[in-house]
């Protein structure tokens, strides 16, 4: 199936700004799905609120565009009610880790088979450039005009601590790696978290004088390094990208099937 066949062309043009990284994520997510040979009816996409969440409208899957921060909770019910669906949950950094932070850690803890894509552009884009919990100390935003004093989360560390069984990070510069990682994340039988560093030239880039979209992508190339690389030892400030955790643990829907078996046998 061609990439085009995964799109709802009726709903284009999309609403993202020129240079936005979200289109690169959409593209490589679909390339990952393409290689898996899944039917469109087997895939459900659940999103929340924000620029990133609009991705669900553009793809020809079962799509559920919910409320701010709660996409993983909606997705958990959807998945539990129909475990054969492949559930993908694209979220922005504010959606996933500010308003949705509690749902995020609990979804990691449950290890329910779904793929959380955290499209991290370090800003609230749709509302016009306010700082997010991923903006980081010392950045500028419309609500941090005198520089931000909030420290950021490390999405990867947080997901690992909370119990996610697949945790990875990539960037929009590393498009090929992104598609490979998303593919691995989707086929992983457990809760997968993929942090995708993406550019918002309109707000984060402009406020922090990072240049245009291509400058920002090159900057992401410069500040990242593959997991376990020597460069990281020499320069601890570099951000690692790649797969951090990929382990097999009992998956939640399968575990609940055991609960059903026990209940039906009359054992408690």
């Amino acid at each position: 199936m061609a990439i085009r066949d995964f799109l709802r062309e009726r709903f284009f043009p999309h609403m993202w700004c020129p240079g936005c990284g979200h289109g690169i994520v959409l593209n490589n997510m679909l390339r990952a799905i393409q290689t898996l040979g899944m039917s469109k009816n087997e895939i459900a996409m659940v999103s929340g609120i924000g620029c990133s969440s609009r991705i669900s409208g553009y793809v020809d899957f079962h799509t559920l565009h919910t409320i701010h921060g709660r996409a993983l909770a909606f997705a958990t019910g959807l998945k539990m009610s129909m475990p054969e669906l492949n559930v993908i949950v694209p979220m922005g950094d504010g959606d996933a880790l500010s308003i949705g932070g509690n749902h995020f850690i609990h979804a990691c803890r449950r290890n329910i088979a779904m793929t959380a894509l955290v499209m991290n552009n370090r800003i609230y884009g749709m509302t016009g450039g306010q700082f997010s919990p991923l903006s980081g100390y010392g950045t500028l935003a419309t609500t941090a005009p005198y520089t931000n004093i909030d420290h950021g989360f490390d999405v990867v560390d947080l997901a690992i601590s909370a119990g996610a069984t697949f945790v990875a990070r990539t960037t929009t510069y590393h498009a090929k790696q992104m598609a490979d990682i998303i593919r691995e994340a989707i086929i992983h039988d457990g809760f997968s978290v993929v942090e995708i560093m993406t550019q918002c030239p309109t707000y984060f880039g402009r406020k922090n004088k990072l240049g245009d979209a291509s400058n920002m992508m090159e900057w992401m190339k410069d500040i990242t390094t593959p997991v376990g690389s020597k460069a990281k030892e020499e320069n601890p400030d570099l951000i690692e990208r790649g797969i951090f955790v990929q382990k097999e643990l009992p998956e939640y829907c399968s575990e609940y099937n055991k609960v059903i078996e026990r209940a039906m046998k009359g054992r408690s």
Partner: peptide, 26 residues
């Protein structure tokens, strides 16, 4: 679970209503 149904204990009430809405869709 005795009838093959599902009981989910969510992290809060927001998530509880969200989860049943997701399940209703199927």
């Amino acid at each position: 679970p005795k009838i093959g149904g599902k009981y989910l204990q969510m992290e809060d009430e927001i998530a509880s209503l969200a989860a049943i809405i997701g399940a209703s869709l199927t």
